[in-house]
C-alpha cells in the first residue's frame, strides 16, 4: 500500500486536463516551405482548448474534439515575370516634315512582389495520450503524452488561406505600373498555382509540429514537498521527500486515474 493515494474519475479528469491545457504554452514555430512553385517563409503559434477526456486501460487518456487554435503568417516572394506575359509599349512613329520621329519600344519588366498573409483558424482533432511519470530536475511530473499525430482535416482552412493569398497578392500588385489589365490574370494565376493541396501540404506539417510529442502536465511537485511553510523563527518549513510516484488508469465500476505516492 502506498502512503498517499489520489483517484479521480473522468469528470474530474476533464477538469484536471483542461487546467493543464490552460497552463500549456506551445512554443512558436517558424520555417520555410513550398507553396506550389513558390517558397514561403512562415511563422506560427498555437494553443489548445476544449475537448472531452475519457480514460481506459491500459493507461490511455482519450482526448476527443480538442480545438487546436492556430495563427500562421506566410510571406511569399513571387516573381511576376514567371506568371505574367511580357508587356511592351510598341514603337510609335510620327511623320514630320523632317522625317519620322519614333519612340523606342519600351518593355516592362514585372517586379518580384512580397505577399504577406496571416490567417488564424481552429482545427479540431482527437488523439490518444499515454501516461509518463518522471523525476526531472528535482521535480516529479505526471505527463500525458500524445501517442500519434492525428490526421487533420485542413481543406476548409486551406481554402480560406488560398483566398487570403489572392487578396493579399492583389493588394501587393495594385501599386505596380501598367498592371491594371493583368491584375485579375495574375491573381488567378497565383491562386491556381498554389492551390488548396499545396497549402494543405504545408499547413499540415506546420500544425504537426505543435502536436508532435504534445505533452500536458497534470502533476508537478518538487520531490522535497512542502507540507507547511515556515511559521516563524522557531518553526521552520516542514517538508517530506516524495520517494516514488506512480500513475495509472484503473477500471472498476468507473474508469479512474490513480496517483500513488510514497513519502
Amino acid at each position: 500500500m502506498s502512503d498517499l493515494l489520489a483517484a479521480i474519475d473522468e469528470t474530474a479528469a476533464n477538469t484536471i486536463l483542461h487546467d493543464a491545457e490552460s497552463a500549456l504554452s506551445l512554443p512558436p514555430q517558424s520555417g520555410s516551405g513550398s507553396l506550389g512553385p513558390f517558397t514561403a517563409a512562415w511563422s506560427a503559434s498555437a494553443s489548445l482548448t476544449g475537448g472531452t477526456v475519457t480514460l481506459s486501460a491500459p493507461n490511455i487518456v482519450h482526448f476527443t474534439n480538442v480545438d487546436l487554435n492556430y495563427s500562421v503568417s506566410f510571406s511569399l516572394s513571387i516573381d511576376l515575370n514567371s506568371i505574367l506575359p511580357d508587356f511592351c509599349l510598341p514603337q510609335i512613329c510620327i511623320p514630320t516634315p523632317w522625317g519620322d520621329i519614333c519612340t523606342p519600344q519600351i518593355c516592362i519588366s514585372w517586379p518580384t512582389i512580397t505577399v504577406p498573409v496571416s490567417h488564424s483558424g481552429t482545427v479540431t482533432f482527437s488523439a490518444d495520450f499515454g501516461i509518463n511519470v518522471h523525476l526531472t530536475g528535482g521535480q516529479w511530473f505526471v505527463d500525458v503524452v500524445i501517442l500519434a499525430i492525428p490526421s487533420l482535416s485542413l481543406d476548409a482552412e486551406a481554402a480560406a488561406i488560398v483566398a487570403a493569398l489572392g487578396l493579399a497578392a492583389s493588394a501587393a500588385m495594385l501599386a505596380i505600373p501598367f498592371i491594371g489589365p493583368f491584375l485579375a490574370l495574375a491573381v488567378a494565376a497565383i491562386t491556381a498555382l498554389i492551390g488548396i493541396a499545396a497549402v494543405t501540404g504545408l499547413l499540415g506539417p506546420i500544425l504537426g509540429l505543435f502536436l508532435d510529442g504534445l505533452t500536458l502536465t497534470i502533476y508537478q511537485q518538487p520531490q522535497v514537498f512542502e507540507v507547511l511553510p515556515a511559521g516563524g523563527p522557531f518553526d521552520p518549513q516542514v517538508n517530506v521527500l516524495l520517494n516514488a510516484v506512480t500513475a495509472d488508469v484503473e477500471v472498476s465500476d468507473k474508469n479512474e486515474l490513480v496517483l500513488r505516492v510514497d513519502v
Binding site: 498517499l4 493515494l5 489520489a6 483517484a7 479521480i8 474519475d9 474530474a12 472498476s252 479512474e256 490513480v258
Partner: peptide, 10 residues
C-alpha cells in the same frame, strides 16, 4: 471504484 459516487478520492 475509489471515488464511488464522488469525483475525487484521497
Amino acid at each position: 471504484s475509489f471515488t464511488q459516487t464522488h469525483h475525487a478520492f484521497v
